[in-house]
Nucleic acid binder design. Structure first.
Lengths: 252, 252
DNA sequence: AAGTTGCATTGATACAGATCAAAGGGGTGC
DNA sequence: GCACCCCTTTGATCTGTATCAATGCAACTT
């Protein structure tokens, strides 16, 4: 990955990259949701263009001033938090239609890093202007709140995963989550390409990369999935789902 | 705790409990932040009164329709998520000035339970009305966004804790976090009363209650803290902080 | 004041996942 | 198209935390 030596170069807005929510087939997943044509137009004119990123480039880094949130148009990202003492926690993986950067609102400074895991495209949404517009368009305001709330709920799910699940359960939950999200975007729910390394999966799931690799192998041995490097095929979704319930089943 | 047999009774709004942000000494920590007198008055008239809860009573439960967020006026809460298969994860502990219930915005239904760990009081903030007001008062809107964003950032911190830290590090981080929050409210940063059980701490930190207990004992043996049941005195804050850095220190 | 009940502490043992180590394979960049 | 390097896999061993178990403590009830 020699391209990575250039990862310090902050990519500029791609001049020719026109974006318009009104034309976007991700609009059901993304911000605009259910706006009138007129309001959609106002949102279009707010979106500050797009930005293309090569694999390995940072969309933003912790410490940079916060100005915009981003909508993933295409590609795949990871976000991670880094502490002074060198700990590194992947906090999420984002795909088309998902919003990045809301961590920066609270302090006006980004608190995590967002890195493109493949060549990607995002829409830039200047936050101050979004706030102004959303105070005029109630459904936009409400949808923004829903998006932020959804992020909070998602985070609770990750806490649940990290706090209560064993390694295989975590990985099963991870695969099923990816499956569901790919499916919602019109891709196969059973066959997909992992954009992240075992180490990144491990960081997200609170496991070491070897543990992730072993769990993949065991799933394959048991006929649940087929793995070949980053290519995954889920063979038995129902049985994968049963892994999420502990052996003794429901209690109480 | 026979009083708990009544915990199913949903507490109603306490009729006589008048609340006013303008009079509240928590306003710097809570929603209003820096409003003009006039705007403060409008916010006051929106707040739908207060509610008192006895220890053991639920403020809301997962599945209930979402209508309001809540500001803790006094007391102490925990929030937890419960899965169908019986897993239980404490997602946070909330004290005076902190906001509860933002998880419910995304689906219009609460996704977690909020339980009073001691006799408590909250302000009811009807969310639809808050949105309406916040589209008129820009600084209120922005502050609401900051509060939600802060929750996201906090969640990332918990992920970091659950994903990368060992038991003693988690407990040290937990104690230091409590210390800092008590301090911000004018209480002693070194001496406080835990409102939650070892099991609840364990659930929050992804540990078993025995592990929490042992870690407390070890901290005491090493002269870092003094523990007597739920009473904690932090003897050596600096040394407690060093526990958060791994033995080899900063890397890279 | 005694009894009850839940919570906390402590010890012994078991086990899941981390760590250490080595080899093979595939994608990437030149 | 080739070579290099990173990623992945797999094995052996170690260790931190869970689990199982029993006792102690404290608050609340009656």
């Amino acid at each position: 990955m020699h391209a990575n030596v250039k990862q310090n170069v902050v990519p500029l807005i791609t001049p020719g990259l026109k974006v318009a929510c009104s034309q976007c087939n991700l609009r059901e997943l993304c911000l605009p949701f259910d706006l009138s044509d007129e309001d959609m137009g106002r949102l279009d004119s707010l979106i500050g263009g797009g930005r293309k990123l090569k694999r390995g480039q940072h969309l933003y880094r912790a410490g940079e001033p916060f100005e915009s949130i981003f909508a993933v148009r295409a590609g795949f990202f990871k976000t991670d938090v880094l502490t002074e003492d060198g700990r590194d926690q992947v906090t999420g993986f984002q795909m088309a239609g998902e919003i990045l950067g809301m961590d920066g609102i609270s302090t006006e400074v980004h608190t995590c890093n967002a890195l493109a895991l493949e060549d990607s495209e995002v829409c830039l949404i200047p936050f101050t202007e979004l706030e102004m517009l959303s105070s005029e368009i109630h459904s936009l305001q409400h949808h923004l709140h829903k998006v932020m709330s959804r992020e909070i709920v998602r985070d609770h799910g990750v806490m649940m995963l990290l706090g209560t699940m064993r390694a295989e359960e975590r990985l099963a939950a991870f695969l099923l989550n990816l499956s569901q999200r790919f499916s919602a975007r019109g891709y196969s729910p059973v066959e997909f390409h992992l954009r992240m390394t075992r180490e990144e999966i491990g960081s997200y799931l609170g496991l070491k990369l070897e543990t992730v690799s072993r769990a993949f192998s065991r799933f394959q041995d048991e006929g649940l999935i087929s793995v070949q490097q980053k290519h995954i095929r889920i063979v038995d979704i129902p049985r994968l789902k049963t892994l999420l319930a502990p052996p003794d089943g429901r209690i109480g």
